[in-house]
Design a protein around this nucleic acid. Structure first.
Length: 666
RNA sequence: GCCGGCGUAGCUCAACUGGUAGAGCAACCGCCUUGUAAGCGGUAGGUUGCGGGUUCAAGUCCUGCCGCCGGCACCA
């Protein structure tokens, strides 16, 4: 007797062990047909797998979107691999999972694939779907699997299976004469995959994610339950491309990057206006939150980086300038250059590094004069310009650059203050994110790695402090076990933009090591010397990345307080130029970034153009408005206009233009 | 850094298998004095990323480099 409990709580008894397919059949033929896999005590199983004992069972159909898509996409990966091996038999298979939006499969093959091969592969995949061959789960021993793949020349698979624990059952999935090592589960047959899939892109990927290993060829695809969903997905991708900050940055004339300064931003007047608004806002918030602002050098002698440990651990990411103090020429190179370790001793050559972070410099300020426990917590902020030699393939618009400015700060405090400082910090961060239009954010918590500095007791204390503070602040923590820095645990604050992409911006990292290395100390209540703890923290992360996210999140339609041009005044005929200029002057006096458009163009044309430029408000002035000293306010994206008296318009728009910069809330 | 793709006017793109590099928008100059998302006409704009090679002839084919795009690795 097997008792099967269904999701509605009803219990069905079966005389013998039973499969998911049989349960579905016993409930109804419609369900049996729709069934994809079955969930047994929370675990997804194949429909043909026998359930031996009592269990909670749910039949999964394509109504259960996330499970259905996972299984479907995993199947798509298998069908892809089968198609590729039928077409290109010299190809080795490796590994191919479902992803958030589709699937991929990594292949090994001497000859590179090309996107031109996609058509043929897709066609073959469709054929395999048409064949509708059963997908069968088989249990093998590890050695059998290894021998099987070895004989076939599938060296990657053979290697992989030997890493699985011995003695456990290993499952192979067979579809027709093609077979793959796989945990499953899968659909009952290839026909169930349907044809709502599409191969998307080709990429290199390292075997087992390690750059020292051979590189494989990864084929990415997407798969959905039906063509409508597939089409919706493709449309969504297109829409996302339209709000790419690199594209909008060009269209809106905000910034550019050129090859003479790879990874560094040329901010144009409008982009710089946005940047400055963010900076002014942050300065105001930090002032109000009890931070002191400092500014530290860009170029710092190698000696300090040796003391801080960066020279050893971070040098390949540092720009190093070499100056010949005997009177020669200066040169500059990336860290991997041949700067030999004893170069400091080399005649008049001195090595200076462009700072990749601000912390060592802040410790230098901390060390000036004697600090008392009464000075703690000391919150030292800097809009710190940093340079890092990022790998060329990592550069990405504003999101990943080589020269950037952090809204950085270091909080020097005692161990006992970590928790309260963390709480205060999270509250500040949440409030700032809200002002920028981000209501929700994720918090990741990374605890002790295997290799670390500091005692377990200290780690216990710091981890508990961070976690408790974050939970008190109402955050749902995503755990990243073992991912902390060697010098302390950390919190990462991740923003999700409107397209659903995640970006790490804020961070808070506890550091027990740097104060020690750079000999920071304070005099405690007991009159003795103590080490402070440092909290490295940033809210926006870098202005560059954050602005990139802002642009994408708002699709360029920035809220008025952030807009470079907040209001355009457009007269209908040149006769009204005088009044338009008066309106602009009045707005400017009230602190609004306003411009007049006095070109000899029709009002239609002007509205179209400034709407494309994403100006949040256009004030149309014609003879009627001028006479009554009014303006017609036309909002970006709106169809209607609102006619109001000039003073009222100025009052309302200036309030809006200041946004959170004008509030009394801090 | 690695794999693949791409590089034509300021922008978006065209130029069949090698045969004189073209359009729209933007810009500039005129005309039009305009009422809520493109008025009309004209002018100018290029060493086809850079360098080699094949050819009677190269944007197109081969090759080296640079950059960009996608992904991987990296993101202390």
């Amino acid at each position: 007797m097997v008792a099967i409990t269904l999701p509605d709580g009803s219990v069905r008894d079966y005389d013998n062990p039973v499969t998911g397919a049989e349960i579905a059949q016993s409930i109804g033929p419609g369900l049996a047909k729709a069934a994809m896999v079955v969930k047994v005590d929370g675990e997804l199983w194949d429909l043909d797998r026998t359930i031996e004992s009592d269990a909670n069972v749910a039949i999964i159909t394509d109504k259960q979107e996330s499970e259905a898509l996972d299984v479907l996409r995993h199947d798509a990966a298998h069908v892809l691999a089968m198609a590729v091996q039928e077409l290109y038999p010299e190809t080795q298979i490796t590994f191919g999972p479902a992803t958030e939006e589709g699937f991929y499969y990594d292949f090994h093959r001497e000859e590179p694939f090309s996107t031109e091969d996609f058509e043929a592969i897709e066609k073959r995949m469709a054929e395999i779907v048409d064949r509708d061959v059963p997908i069968v789960r088989e249990v093998w021993t590890r050695d059998d699997v290894a021998n099987f793949f070895k004989e076939k020349g599938e060296t990657f698979k053979a290697e992989w299976v030997m890493e699985l624990p011995d003695g456990e059952d290993i499952t192979m999935y067979r579809q027709g004469d093609w077979i793959d090592l796989c945990r499953g589960p899968h659909l009952p047959s290839t026909g169930r995959l349907g044809k709502s899939f599409k191969l998307m892109k080709l990429a290199g990927a390292y075997w087992r994610g390690d750059a020292r290993n051979p590189q494989l060829q990864r084929i990415y695809g997407t798969a959905w339950r039906n063509d409508k969903e597939l089409k919706a997905y493709l449309t969504r991708i297109e829409e996302a491309e339209k709000r790419d900050h690199r594209r909008l940055g060009k269209e809106m004339d905000l910034f550019h990057i050129q090859e003479e300064a790879r990874g560094s931003v040329f901010w144009h007047p409008k982009g710089w206006s946005l940047y400055r608004t963010c900076e002014q806002y942050m300065r105001k918030r930090l002032d109000a939150a009890g931070y002191v602002e400092v500014k530290t050098p860009q170029l710092v002698d190698r000696k300090l980086w040796e003391e801080s440990g960066h020279w050893e651990k971070f040098r390949e990411h540092m720009f190093i300038a070499e100056v010949d103090e005997s009177g020669g020429e200066a040169s500059e190179s990336a860290g991997s250059a041949d700067a030999s370790d004893d170069a400091a001793a080399d005649g008049g050559i001195r090595h200076l590094a462009l700072k990749p972070m601000n912390c060592p410099c802040h410790v230098q300020i901390f060390r000036q004069g004697i600090k008392s426990y009464r000075d703690l917590p000391l919150r030292m902020a800097e809009f710190g310009s940093c340079h890092r030699y990022e790998p060329s393939g990592a550069l990405h618009g504003l999101m990943r650059v080589r020269a950037f400015t952090q809204d950085d700060a270091h909080i020097f405090c005692t161990e006992d203050q970590i928790e309260s400082e963390t709480e205060i910090f999270i509250a500040l961060l949440a409030s700032i994110y809200r002002d920028f239009g981000f209501e929700e954010f994720a918090v990741k918590f990374s605890d002790r790695p295997d290799v670390r500095a500091g005692s377990d007791e200290t780690w216990d204390k710091a981890e508990t402090a961070l976690k408790d503070a974050a939970i008190k602040a109402g955050a749902d923590l995503i755990m990243n076990p073992g991912e902390g820095a060697f010098y302390g645990p950390k919190l990462e604050f991740v923003l999700r933009d409107a397209i659903g992409r995640d970006w790490q911006c804020g961070t808070l990292q506890v550091d027990f090591v740097l104060p020690e290395r750079l000999d920071a100390e304070y005099v405690g209540e007991d009159g003795g010397k103590h080490r402070p703890v440092m909290l490295h923290r940033a809210i926006l992360g870098s202005f560059e990345r954050f602005i990139g996210i802002l642009i994408e999140n708002f699709a360029g339609r920035l809220p008025m307080w952030l807009s470079p041009v907040q209001v355009v005044v457009a007269p209908i005929t040149n006769e009204l130029d005088g009044y338009a200029e008066e309106v602009v002057a009045t707005l400017a006096k009230a602190g609004v970034r306003a411009e007049a458009d006095l070109r000899n163009e029709k009002i239609n044309y002007k509205i179209r153009e400034h709407s494309h430029a994403k100006v949040p408000a256009i004030l149309v002035v014609g003879g009627r408005e001028a006479e009554a000293r009014q303006v017609a306010i036309r909002r970006l994206g709106g169809k209607d206009q609102e006619i109001v008296a000039l003073e009222e318009a100025v009052d309302r728009l200036s309030r809006e233009a200041l946004g959170p910069l004008g509030g009394q809330r801090f």
